[in-house]
Structure formats: structure tokens, C-alpha cells
């Protein structure tokens, strides 16, 4: 639990991350994801409850925990006074890694993140995607057992995101444990073994992406333009539907029947589409469609 004055940013949540899995935190802006990550990283003291990392209490054994964690913060905080390579060396020094070893790992990590060419470039001269890759490389410099990534692909183009996903998957394949937050639901669906969806500081649901979709959205979604006819037909059938702007969504396990009914009702005047349900549908259903400030 975490309080900022009167605001309860994280409200009595409970979760357990298993070794070797990728665990995701999803939620709208202000849900409390970053606050939760910071408590795990021992940089923001919790206001109550218990939190253990590697079986150690976050209040009393911060240094031990932090030495075994890799952290990718939401906000970029690479050191602008240094080049990409020096950033890794300087960061390694905070962990007390000897110079030789640090140099070896820095070279290796720059290669791993495909940043060799940018080795001697100052941070300001890197693109957003390169910075993000470098920050991931930096998080790996102490060979962490647990990697915490707060929106690892924020603001990146598809190429950069795919590269990062590939790297994260290869880290997982090596047996690393990853905890990540994201707003990109396709990212969560691809990467996470299990995830939670948070809102207003609380965990709404927990499970594997597939289970969550099955439980909260059904197998498919039928979408049709919002017309009076379509609505009355659905009312007649007694089918549950959601309104999303000017589109009607029907979450169902029998998509073909519903689609046929709707096509008949609208006399083929409106387009009806059927698509598999995604995590995004679950997310929007659970957290609502209104904008968060």
C-alpha cells in the first residue's frame, strides 16, 4: 500500500511473481503501476503492508535487493554527461563491478542491444529508441536475477518495439524473471505469462492473457455500426452488448450466429465485422472508456 498525503496510490494489492516468468502490470494512467514498481525497487518506501523481494523485506535489506535487480525506469535517466559506453561503465561502478569486468560486460551489452555503432555517442545524440535500448542494456550490467521494466517500449516505432520484444524474450529464455508495465496491450499479450490489470490503485484481475480474454471477453467480438435497428435486434435477442463510441460491440462465443442476426436486422446496410477478442477488449471493459487525467 502507498499513500501520498490523502491520495492512496496503491491500495492493498497482493501479487506473487514466480521465478522465470514474465509478469505484467497493466492499467490506465495513474493506476499506480509506477508506484508499485518503485516500491519493489526499494526507492519508494511503502506506507503499509508487507513486500518481499527474493524473500527479503524491502524496508530492511534494500542494498541486497537492489544489487540483484535490474531497473528500466519509465522516465529516461541516462547520464547526459557521458557516451553510451561510459554510461554503462559508470553505472557498473555503482554496483562495485571491477573495471575490467565492467568493460567486458559493456561491450557485450552494446552488441546485444545492437548499439555498437553508437558506443562513443553522447546520450543527447541518440534517438528515443536507442536510449530505450541503452537503458535496458544498463539494467543488465549487474546480471540481475529480476528485471523490472516500467513501460520499456514507450514512444517507440514498430521496428524498435519488435527488437526490444525479441531481446526480452531471449532474456526470458535464459531463465530471467521479468516484471513489466505497459500500455500496449499487444505487447502484454505477446510477452507476459501472467498479468494483472490495475485501476485506481487496486488489482482488478489476474491471470494469463488467454484466460483473461476467455473469462472477460469471450472468444470473439462482433462489431457493427450503431443504428437503432441493430440495438433493437440485440435487445430482442437478449444479447449483452457494449457501446464504444459509434460502434456496438458484442462479446460472444457464438460470433457467427450473432453476426448473421445483425446482418439480417440491418438488411445488409451496415458493415458487420467479426474478430477474435483481444486483451484490449478486456482492458477497456474492465477499466471503462473514459479518459484519465
Amino acid at each position: 500500500m502507498k499513500r501520498f498525503g490523502d491520495l492512496i496510490a496503491v491500495d492493498r494489492i497482493a501479487f506473487r511473481v514466480r521465478e522465470g516468468e514474465v509478469f505484467g502490470f497493466l492499467g490506465p494512467n495513474g493506476a499506480g503501476k509506477t508506484t508499485t514498481m518503485k516500491m519493489i525497487q526499494c526507492i519508494s518506501p511503502k506506507s503499509g503492508g508487507t513486500l518481499e523481494v527474493f524473500g527479503m523485506d524491502v524496508d530492511t535489506r534494500q542494498r541486497e535487493i537492489k544489487s540483484r535487480l535490474g531497473v528500466v525506469p519509465q522516465e529516461n535517466n541516462l547520464d547526459p554527461d557521458f557516451s553510451a559506453y561510459r554510461n554503462l561503465l559508470v553505472y557498473a561502478r555503482y554496483f562495485g563491478i571491477p573495471r575490467r569486468e565492467a568493460e567486458r560486460r559493456a561491450d557485450e551489452l552494446l552488441a546485444f542491444m545492437q548499439l555498437d555503432e553508437k558506443r562513443d555517442v553522447l546520450i543527447d545524440k541518440l534517438s528515443g529508441g536507442m536510449k530505450r535500448r541503452l537503458i535496458i542494456a544498463r539494467a543488465l550490467v549487474n546480471e540481475p536475477e529480476l528485471l523490472i521494466l516500467d513501460e520499456p517500449t514507450i514512444g517507440l516505432d514498430p521496428q524498435a518495439r519488435h527488437l526490444i520484444w525479441e531481446k526480452l524474450r531471449s532474456l526470458r529464455a535464459e531463465g530471467n524473471t521479468l516484471v513489466l508495465t505497459t500500455h500496449y496491450l499487444d505487447e502484454a499479450e505477446r510477452l507476459c505469462d501472467r498479468l494483472v490489470i490495475m485501476d485506481h490503485g487496486k488489482i482488478l484481475v489476474e491471470g494469463t492473457p488467454a484466460d483473461l480474454i476467455r473469462e472477460h471477453a469471450g472468444s470473439d467480438v462482433v462489431e457493427v455500426e450503431r443504428t437503432q435497428k441493430a440495438v433493437s435486434r440485440l435487445e430482442e435477442l437478449g444479447v449483452n452488448y457494449d457501446l464504444a463510441g459509434d460502434v456496438i460491440q458484442v462479446f460472444t462465443d457464438r460470433p457467427n450466429d450473432v453476426a448473421r442476426d445483425l446482418l439480417e436486422a440491418c438488411r445488409h446496410e451496415a458493415a458487420v465485422t467479426v474478430r477474435p477478442a483481444t486483451l484490449e477488449d478486456v482492458f477497456l471493459r474492465l477499466t471503462g472508456r473514459s479518459l484519465r487525467e
Partner: peptide, 14 residues
Amino acid sequence: YQKTFDAIIATPVG
């Protein structure tokens, strides 16, 4: 501005 302190306290340095 640089958030250098934030970066450092995520390591074993307090």
C-alpha cells in the same frame, strides 16, 4: 533535470 540521483539510487548506492 538529468535525474541522475534517481538513476543512482536504483543501484546499491543509497
